[in-house]
Amino acid sequence: MDSEFRTQLLGTVGRWSLVLALVLALLLLSAVPFSITGFGDVRPFFALMAVYYWSILASAPPVGVFAFGLVLDLLSGYPPGMNALVLVAAQAMTAHQRKFLLGQSFLVIWAGFAVVAFCAGSVQWVLFSLLNLTVMAVLPVLIAVALSALMFPLCVLPLAAVYRVVADRPETP
């Protein structure tokens, strides 16, 4: 094994380890109990932020996103497929608009996320209402959407940093 190949291999392993560590951190952040609002356990869609932002920067594998959503479902007590569906749909939606979003300022990307978060919250609300055969409360979902939109710029910083290292590109939108 020549040294150049070894360096390349170590670099690849290191980069993917970084991605894996961030995915695990997102899972933990979505699951660990903490209350950042006076509204109980309503929390931002952390996983959605990562899927949206990375789908703009690069094409994330839909099967990986599906698997991540499924683990999140099993961990959170959701019906299996709920987070998986929302994340895969969000990724497909973002990928469709990728060329447009890549050339835009951060404000437009931020506004785009607010739309995606609203759609994700609405889809979950409809599906939960259908599965439970009742009309679920709307306010907690709207709070989660608003919190997600507000916290997006803060959460994008580590996502952008990891992307810069993994893709070896100094610039991100």
Binding site: A31, V32, P33, D41, S76, G77, Y78, A144
Partner: peptide, 12 residues
Amino acid sequence: VVSDAGGAFVKS
């Protein structure tokens, strides 16, 4: 308690 990931829809 180590996780309360249910959010707005599931209380567990």
